[in-house]
C-alpha cells in the first residue's frame, strides 16, 4: 500500500518535471527574452551584460534548476504584454475559473446522476430514450455552439440572463466570489451549464450503463428475492456500487473542465485564467503561457493522484493487487 502510494507520487513528480521542462523550453527557445528589455541603441556589450545578468550564459541545466526553483515560489517573471508579475495576474483570475469549474461540476453531477439512474431503471421509457437522444446530440455539439445557443435562447430571445461577463462579485481580500450575490449567480448560470453539459451527458451515460449492468447481477436478484423494497434495492444496493466509477470519472473530468473553460470563458467573456491564456497564445506572451501550463498540469496531476488514492480506499481489489506489484 505504502509502496503503491510512493510509486504513484514518484510518477506524479516525473510528469511535473517533464511539463516544467516544456515550460522552460518555451522560455529558452521561443523568442529571446532580452528582446523585450533592449532598445534600438543598446550596444552589443550592454546586450551581453543583460544576458549575463539574467543568467542566460549559464549551462542549460543550471538555468532549468533555477527555473524550477522560481516556479516553486510562483515566480514566473513579468508578462510581456502588461509588464505585471505573472503570479499577480493569475492570482486575480484564478477564483473566476475555479468557481466556474466548481459550479459546472456540481451541475453535471446533480443533473447527470438522477437522469442516469432513471434511464438505467427504466431504459424502455419514453423519457429515458429522450435522454439518450439528447445526450448523443450533446456529444456532437461543440462546446462553443452550446454556449452560443444558450446565449441566443436565454439572453437574446427571453432576456432572462446576462450574456457575458462576471457580475456581482464580492472581494474577500484573497478571493473574489460571485456566490454571494443574486447578480453573481445569474451571470454564472449560463457559463456553468455550457461547461458542464458535456460532462453531464458523460455522467448520465456512465450511470445508466453501470446501473443496467449492476441490476443484472446476482446479489440484486437475491436482494429482491429476500423481499426488500424496490427503493432499498435500487438506491441502497445498486446505486452505491455504480458510484465508484462515477467518482473516478468525475475526478478525472475536473481536469478537462478546467481546460475546456478556455472555450466557455471566450464565449461568455468570463474573466478567468482560460481567457487570459488564450490572449497570451495570440500575443505570444510566453511567461503567461508557461505559467498557465505548469499550473494546469499541477492541478491535473494533483487531481489524478487524489483520484487514484481515493480509488484504493474505496475499492479493496486494488489494494490487494497494489500490494502484489
Amino acid at each position: 500500500m505504502l509502496a503503491f502510494i510512493l510509486r504513484r507520487i514518484g510518477q506524479a513528480i516525473l510528469v511535473l518535471l517533464t511539463v516544467a521542462l516544456i515550460s522552460f523550453s518555451l522560455f529558452r527557445f521561443v523568442g529571446d527574452p532580452t528582446q523585450q528589455m533592449v532598445s534600438q541603441d543598446t550596444t552589443l556589450e550592454e546586450r551581453l551584460q543583460i544576458r549575463k545578468n539574467l543568467g542566460l550564459d549559464d549551462p542549460v541545466i543550471v538555468q532549468f534548476g533555477r527555473f524550477v526553483g522560481k516556479a516553486a515560489r510562483f515566480d514566473f517573471g513579468l508578462s510581456y504584454q502588461t509588464r505585471q508579475p505573472v503570479a499577480t495576474l493569475i492570482g486575480d483570475r484564478f477564483p473566476a475559473t475555479m468557481e466556474l469549474a466548481f459550479a459546472s461540476a456540481l451541475f453535471a453531477l446533480f443533473a447527470g446522476i438522477p437522469m442516469g439512474v432513471y434511464a438505467g431503471l427504466k431504459p424502455q421509457s419514453l423519457l429515458a430514450r429522450l435522454f439518450q437522444t439528447v445526450s448523443l446530440i450533446g456529444i456532437s455539439l461543440p462546446t462553443f455552439l452550446i454556449g452560443i445557443l444558450l446565449i441566443f435562447v436565454f439572453s437574446v430571445s427571453f432576456g432572462l440572463l446576462p450574456s457575458f461577463g462576471r457580475q456581482g462579485t464580492v472581494n474577500l481580500g484573497f478571493w473574489t466570489t460571485s456566490f454571494l450575490t443574486l447578480e453573481g449567480w445569474r451571470s454564472l448560470i449560463l457559463p456553468a451549464v455550457t461547461l458542464g453539459l458535456f460532462q453531464m451527458t458523460l455522467i448520465m451515460r456512465l450511470v445508466r450503463s453501470e446501473m443496467m449492468e449492476v441490476l443484472r447481477t446476482d446479489y440484486i436478484k437475491f436482494a429482491k428475492a429476500r423481499g426488500l423494497k424496490p427503493r432499498a434495492v435500487n438506491y441502497g444496493h445498486a446505486l452505491k456500487n455504480t458510484l465508484i466509477p462515477v467518482i473516478t470519472i468525475t475526478g478525472l473530468q475536473l481536469g478537462s473542465i478546467i481546460a475546456f473553460a478556455i472555450i466557455t470563458e471566450t464565449v461568455f467573456q468570463w474573466p478567468g485564467m482560460g481567457l487570459m491564456f488564450l490572449q497570451a497564445v495570440q500575443t505570444v506572451d510566453i511567461p503567461i503561457m508557461s505559467a498557465y501550463l505548469l499550473l494546469v498540469a499541477s492541478l491535473f496531476v494533483l487531481i489524478n493522484l487524489i483520484v487514484d488514492l481515493l480509488y484504493v480506499v474505496v475499492d479493496p481489489r486494488i489494494r490487494i493487487s497494489g500490494r502484489a506489484a
Binding site: V15, L26, V30, G31, G255, S256, A259, F260, I262, I263, F277, L278, A280, V281, Q282, V284, I286, M289, L293, V296, A297, F300, N304
Partner: peptide, 19 residues
C-alpha cells in the same frame, strides 16, 4: 493523453506563433 487535445493544440499554436 492525460491532457485534453485542445490544450495541447493551443500550446503548439502558441509555439508556432513565436517561431
Amino acid at each position: 493523453l492525460s491532457f485534453p487535445a485542445i490544450l495541447i493544440a493551443l500550446l503548439i499554436f502558441g509555439v508556432a506563433r513565436g517561431l
